[in-house]
């Protein structure tokens, strides 16, 4: 565990907190993509299959990971519940039109071609990594469709993007300090994921400096 990894995970938790705070305080899930939340649910439930095989108390790190995994799984399930049930009438269904089955199918094909080992577990793990890289796309499309973005929603996406950017710092750290090699799959997907946010980051920082709401062209 290094400072980049810890900061990244904290930002990930903060982003989830911001998302739930936005929905709860405004009693509305306007501007939030159900499709992105659904993709994250798939990502977490395929990535964290090892919850069934790993003893949480094996080490401090596995305990920490287990807590985080359960938190990510349960919070994304809860978010989906809120959007689909309690605040259903505020969900912006008309603009949330990204065709996610292409993302899911594309990730599945990539996972069958690129994986660490040819085992079901490794292929499912690779699938989750590919899917996570593109899971934000429906959310970014929704923002572009609607233009004006609520502050708390833009903070949410900013935290989520920063989380993966800090993971890159963590990987560079581990490469030199722990001589950790052969992580090409996670590295490549994490970099693609971070690059997807580049455009958003630009407009976010611009809006923060001007003290205005984020407006996407």
């Amino acid at each position: 565990m290094n400072i980049f990894r810890l900061a990244a995970d904290v930002l990930h938790v903060v982003s989830i907190f911001l998302l739930l705070l936005k929905i709860k305080t405004s009693h509305s899930c306007a501007g939030i993509s159900l499709k992105t939340q659904f993709l994250y649910m798939i990502v977490f439930s395929t990535r964290y299959l090892d919850l069934f095989f790993t003893k949480p108390w094996h080490s401090a790190l596995t305990f920490y990971n287990t807590i985080m995994k359960i938190l990510f799984l349960s919070s994304s399930a809860y978010t989906i519940y809120l959007i689909r049930n309690r605040y259903k009438h505020t969900y912006d269904k008309v603009h949330d039109t990204f065709r996610i089955h292409y993302l899911i199918a594309g990730s599945a094909v990539l996972a069958l071609v690129f994986h660490i080992r040819l085992t079901p577990f490794e292929i499912i793990w690779a699938f989750s990594v590919f899917l996570e890289a593109v899971a934000i796309m429906p959310q970014l499309l929704l923002l572009q469709e609607t233009g004006q973005v609520e502050n708390i929603t833009s903070h949410y996406i900013f935290c989520l993007g920063s989380y993966r950017a800090l993971y890159i710092c963590n990987w560079i750290w581990r490469y030199f300090m722990e001589h950790r090699r052969n992580q090409w799959l996670a590295w490549a997907c994490g970099t693609v994921q971070t690059l997807l946010y580049a455009d958003f980051f630009y407009y976010y920082i611009l809006s923060q400096r001007q003290g205005k709401k984020l407006r996407l062209p």
């Binding site: 990930h12 090892d50 052969n182 992580q183 799959l185 996670a186």
Partner: peptide, 10 residues
């Protein structure tokens, strides 16, 4: 840890 594909990360 090398080659294990990042399973100790989230």
């Amino acid at each position: 840890a090398s080659g294990s594909g990042g399973k100790d990360e989230l």
